[in-house]
Design a protein around this nucleic acid. Structure first.
Lengths: 144, 144
DNA sequence: CTTAATCAATTGACGGGTCAATAGTTGACT
DNA sequence: AGTCAACTATTGACCCGTCAATTGATTAAG
């Protein structure tokens, strides 16, 4: 009875730790934060899109999206303009420079990911991914 | 070639999403943030300890530890006093009230965890935990 | 036409984390 | 003794996320 939540709790603890350890290393390796890279990545695929679309794709608060994009704009990675047909929306797109730079970011990210999954076989990866999906579903189903 | 980092990248993405989804739900279900509960949990085990010990156990910055403990002290969950033999250290311990309340927190946490791991067999849990350990190790080995 | 509802984006206040600088204490060495 | 290095805790500045309130634009209804 010494450890009320040890065995099961360990997994929660591990998920936590992994996240805390991955985030800063990811940033140091790739030179950009995960959220920002996600934003750029999405822009890379779609050319031009609204901020709400981006927000849904990246799954962070729209306030955070606004702030990220403003900074990325300041760094010349991104341009923003109002939708002429509906001034509520702002369209966002990569600049040429941004489009160029994201290529190397993606490469860094790939390298990072292969390091994280070193020694994981194809089967293990799908097995892990499936378990994580199940956890995700369980979490979603939790009622307050 | 459409998705350069899809298959492997998915796992990183999932880990991220799970963390983002778990944190707020955990807090709503248990009534306390994970870090704070970790602090209290550690205190529950050891009676009285220094802040650096706590910091190591919980694995967050010492600045954050200080701020958490000050707030917990304000809420009467925790008491702090200087180590009489070495005034650099401050000893922290649960108050009676804190000790009492943490019991229910732990119960909430256990319930939360079982919900997160619903439908996971014993074997699956250990398998998952092992994989997470391997990932943790891989992350630790990453050089900048 | 004007009013109300809705929607996108922005802003401010806050929680929680990091790092870097500082204050205060201790211990060791000359 | 006195100085210097090491160590704990604290503080301030910053990043990143949330929520809630606000602004500006559009649309729907009377």
């Amino acid at each position: 009875m010494s450890n009320l939540c040890s065995d099961e709790g360990k997994i929660l603890y591990q998920l936590n730790e992994i996240f805390k350890q991955i985030s800063p290393k990811f940033e140091k390796c790739t030179g950009i934060s995960q959220s920002r890279l996600d934003l750029l990545h999405k822009l890379f695929e779609v050319d031009e899109t609204s901020q709400t679309e981006l927000q849904k794709a990246v799954n962070i608060d729209s306030a955070a999206v606004t702030r990220h994009l403003k900074q990325l704009e300041g760094k010349g990675m991104v341009t923003r303009r109002k939708n002429p047909n509906d001034n509520r929306f702002t369209f966002v797109s990569l600049t040429d420079e941004g489009r160029e730079r994201i290529v190397s970011f993606r490469k860094e990210k790939e390298q990072f990911i292969t390091k994280v999954l070193r020694d994981f076989s194809e089967e293990e990866q799908t097995s892990l991914s499936n378990m994580l999906s199940r956890i995700q579903k369980n979490v979603k189903d939790i009622q307050y």
